[in-house]
Structure formats: C-alpha cells, structure tokens
Amino acid sequence: MPKRSVLPVLVYDGDCAFCTTSLTYLMRRLRPKCAITPWQFTDLDALGISRRRAQHELLYVSPTGTVYGGAQAVAKLLLRAGGIWAWPGGLLTLPPVRWIAHGIYRIIAAHRDRMPGGSPTCAMPAAYQAP
C-alpha cells in the first residue's frame, strides 16, 4: 500500500532543464502548499508511481494517494495554489478544455528538449518517442 503524505506531492523530471526551469518559475508565482521532488530522488513505490510513468509526465499525488498526470497534474497544482490560480485550474478539469490541455501537454512533453531552456538531456526516453 502506498505511503500517504499530509501534503500533496508534485513529482517531476529533475534531469530535464526545461521541466526544472518551468517548475521553478511556477513555484515562485503559485506558492502551492505541496512537496516538490524530482522523481530521481523519490521513493516512487511509496507513492504508488512507476518509474516509467514518472519519466513520462509531471505527477501530482494527493494526500489520499490519487495520482494525476500531465495536464491534470498542472490543474491540481493550480487548484492547490488557490486564489486567482484556482480558476484556470478548475477549467483544466472540464471537458473539452481537459482534452485540449492533454493534447497540448503531450506535444510539449514530446518536444521538451527543443523548448526554451531545454537541452538534449530533456528528451523523452526512447520508449515514448515516435518511430
């Protein structure tokens, strides 16, 4: 059974410069009440997360152990930040905005090595790249 935390946990790719830079930028503005950790230094089993999934997307683990990935992790992060940030967070949970956000997230994630601040180490693992 996954270990439960009092605070939500945001898990990201600490080897990816784009992910780290983006998250640092957001954290300065949002100040959400959650633990933030790179997957490389996290006990993924305790959180109920596979390494494969952690390599694939940003993950938000609620205090009850529910795991949200990608655009829905961003939505939960915005909702947790509260205030004005809760509005876009709430919108990201509603169809069709949720579906559009998912597609945009997947495109950005697939090309994060080419995004501002990205580097070759940001490239998605080969298992996630198109042939």
Rank of each mutant, 00 (worst) to 15 (best):
G48F: 01
G70H: 04
P2E: 15
H56S: 05
Y60I: 04
M115D: 00
P125T: 04
Y60L: 05
T93W: 10
G89H: 03
L47I: 07
I100L: 11
A81M: 03
R80L: 13
H102G: 12
Y25A: 06
R52D: 14
A86T: 11
R28T: 08
I49K: 11
Y25V: 05
I104E: 02
P96H: 05
M124T: 06
D13T: 00
G48N: 01
V67K: 00
Y60T: 03
G69D: 02
L30C: 02
M115S: 00
A130P: 15
A71Y: 06
L91Q: 09
P88M: 03
I104S: 04
V11L: 01
Y12S: 07
T37Q: 11
L47W: 08
A101Y: 02
E57S: 08
L23Q: 07
L77E: 07
R112M: 00
S5E: 15
A101D: 02
V67H: 01
V9C: 09
I36S: 12
I36E: 14
R28A: 15
T37G: 12
A46P: 05
T66K: 11
I107D: 04
A110M: 05
T64M: 12
P96R: 05
D45T: 01
I36T: 13
I107K: 06
D43F: 05
G83M: 06
A126M: 04
K33E: 12
T21H: 15
H102S: 14
V74D: 01
F41A: 15
T24A: 15
A46K: 06
T93L: 11
Y68S: 08
A35F: 15
M124E: 12
M27P: 08
P120Q: 13
V9M: 08
P96Q: 06
G118V: 05
W99F: 12
G117C: 08
G89F: 02
D13P: 00
A101E: 01
G103S: 02
S50Y: 05
G69A: 00
V61K: 08
A75W: 03
K33G: 10
S22K: 03
A109D: 07
P38F: 09
D45E: 04
W39D: 03
R98G: 09
A130Y: 14
E57I: 07
T21Q: 12
S62F: 13
R53G: 10
L79Q: 10
G118P: 09
L44D: 14
G103T: 11
G118N: 06
A81H: 02
